[in-house]
């Protein structure tokens, strides 16, 4: 399984903080997004946003980054700290 976590506005839009995704057939972060997009049109819209940021095991990555079972994949909007 892959652990998926969401933060800030994204978490509120999806009304979901985390979920588990079966790793079968999932090779990259892009595949994870595709799988989540299949849920419904709202999720599809959310995961097609170019501004969406992704992290795997606490490192910011792009869509081609490889993922495997046991990884923690995070999705969140652009950061606004400081």
């Amino acid at each position: 399984m892959i652990k998926i976590v969401f933060f800030a506005a994204l978490r509120e839009q999806l009304a979901c903080a985390e979920l588990s995704l079966n790793a079968e057939g999932v090779k990259t972060v892009g595949d994870v997004k595709q799988r989540l997009s299949d849920k419904n049109s709202q999720w599809q819209q959310t995961f097609s946003k170019a501004s969406l940021l992704s992290a795997v095991n606490h490192d910011m990555v792009d869509d081609s980054h490889l993922v495997k079972s046991g990884d923690e994949v995070a999705f969140f909007p652009p950061v606004t700290g400081g």
Binding site: A55, A74, F76, V79, T80, G81, G82
Partner: peptide
């Protein structure tokens, strides 16, 4: 450090 914190560190303000 401040400039990078602003764009890289995962904090969000509401």
């Amino acid at each position: 450090i401040m400039d990078y914190l602003k764009v890289k560190a995962p904090f969000w303000k509401k």
